[in-house]
Every structure is written in C-alpha cells, then in structure tokens.
Design a protein around this nucleic acid. Sequence first.
DNA 1: TCTGAATGGTAACATATGTTACTAATCGGC
DNA 2: GCCGATTAGTAACATATGTTACCATTCAGA
Lengths: 161, 161
Amino acid sequence: MTGDGATRGGLDLSDFTPYRIVVLGRLMSEQLGAAYSSEDLTIPEWRVLAVVSQADAVAARDVVARTPMDKMAVSRAVASLQSKGLILRGPAADRRVSMLRLSPEGSAVYERVSTIALQYEEALWRAMSVSEREAFFDGLQKLELAVESAGVTEDKPQAAE
Amino acid sequence: MTGDGATRGGLDLSDFTPYRIVVLGRLMSEQLGAAYSSEDLTIPEWRVLAVVSQADAVAARDVVARTPMDKMAVSRAVASLQSKGLILRGPAADRRVSMLRLSPEGSAVYERVSTIALQYEEALWRAMSVSEREAFFDGLQKLELAVESAGVTEDKPQAAE
DNA sequence: TCTGAATGGTAACATATGTTACTAATCGGC
DNA sequence: GCCGATTAGTAACATATGTTACCATTCAGA
C-alpha cells in the first residue's frame, strides 16, 4: 500500500493499525447493515436488542454497562424500539427504572437479524484457517486488554505514553 | 463473558467479532484523540493532514480516494484546516480543483501528532510478542481482503454493525 | 464548435450523536 | 423520619455526520 505515490516521511495511514481497525469495523458495519436493513434497525437499537435478548428482563442501566453506549444513547434506542413494538417496559421494584423485555415481534426480529449476523461472521472466517483464526483472536484480545488498561486514567485522559 | 447473568440463545455481542472490532477501534480513537487533543484536530482533519503530508500537493478528490471519507467530509475538513492555517490551497490546471499543501505550521502539527500516534501504536504492540503481532497482522489483512471482496455489491448500504 | 454527460466541490437541509442539566426516586448517615 | 448525596432516566440544546441538489468546469463525441 505504500507504493503508488510520492510517499515521504511521517506516518502512513494505510499502515497505521488503529486506523486500519477503525476502517475495517466501519466496513463490516456497512455490510451487515445492508444485510439486514430490511428490519430497519439502527446500530444502537440492534445492540439493545442483543443485550435484552440475553436475559429475561434488564434495566436500561444494564444495557449501558454491557455496551459502549452512554445512557442517552440507550434511552433513545429503547424509546425507538418501544415505539416499533419490539420492546416492552415493565415496572421494577425501584420505581425509577423499568424492566425491558423483548416482545414476541422483537424476539422474531432479533432472531432473524442475529442469524444473518452470525452467517456473515462465518463467511469472514472462511478467509483463514482455524489456527490463523485463533492466533488472530489471541492478538485481538491482547489488544483489547492493552487498550483498556491504557484508558484507566479516569479524569483527563492525558497523553498515552 | 457468558457467566454473570441468565444468558440464553442467540448471539452474544461480546463474542461477535465485528462488534469487538468496532468497539476496539472506537476506544483507540478516543485514546488517540485524548492524546493529541492539545492540537485541536478532529479525526477527519487528522486524516486529511496525513494524506496531504504524503506528497507535495494533492487534490481533495485524492484524499477521498485514499480514505474512507466521502467528498463532503473531506470538503469540511479541508475548510476547517485552512481556516486554522494548517493547509494551503493553490491553483491547478483543472480549474475546478485546488491543490492542497501543508503550511509550515501544518507540517509542525502533523509532525507532533504523528509522533504521538506512532508512540501509541508502539505501546500497544508491547502487549504481544513479535510473532504474535505478525500472526495478528496476517489475520487482519485477511479479514480486510475478505470484507473488501464481500463488499463489491455497489449499491448504497446503510451503516449498521 | 456545440451539446449532453461526467466530475470536483460546496450549500442547504435532514438526521444522528454528544453534552449539559434537570426531575424523580432511592440511599445513607444521623 | 429527615436531608444531603447518588442514581436512573430524559429533555433541550449543541455539534457532527449523512444526503440531496446544485454550480462551475471539463470532457467526449457528433
């Protein structure tokens, strides 16, 4: 990728790992979105569905805890899912919260979408062997941990070393 | 990650690779952004700087070709960089386009930011051995190729995950 | 050379996402 | 029980990003 123009000093974007990962992620998102756009779900909505589907009933704060979304994003996604009839809200002991469950239609939608998503993932894995895949996973996990531990400085996330 | 709640059927987000990659990319972006926020650059601006720094003069369309940004995003980033005095526009043979170059201050900023960025990347690599890193790169590249070849359907997909 | 199609770039609008601040409810110490 | 501190969730605003349509220019071909 460094061979077609007058390349000189500094950093080559196409060789910068964070950039590659962001771009790869975006491409995957686009393709998945195309795959299930028939269901008319946004990313936050799909994430909420995924988390809510994992248990009988969860509060919005649990969704916040389990996804990289802030509470406003979750609030919006939940409101939208509810208006589409895919999610139901029930009362909780703590009257500030409401428990979220999938409606039957919500379950059906989630089932269809997650099937497509898993097939998509499967298809990607066909690009490499099992051992390659495992090595990749291993590296991915190590990167995740490294990034997490780099981000522990709570207040002002200053220069990363 | 499947051990703390009533987990049941379907897809576990935290184990879904596209999701993991998107989240990892976002975390890296945030940390990098924090690291060089002193320069007050947005991600699109930083991408434009990186591409323009690679050659003596490029047109905006070249930036579009080399990054995952559409022409509107590039247009905005360029306008902003120009107003900050980091980029200069010069005339081109084709009078629809203007050639972009870094100003001296632009070069200085880019130099500082790319140094920080490369140090950040370095720090991440310390999380794994050289051979692990190579295996990871290998997998990453294969994924990139797989995704690219999966995305040949021209149409206009909507983003998802 | 004229004319319709294509291209580079931007304006104006629509939508999505982030930020701040607020309300209602619960909690913890007294 | 009372009261300040904390929490869950949302409203209202600000900013960023995507979308459409447009203008000026260039290109291709009769």
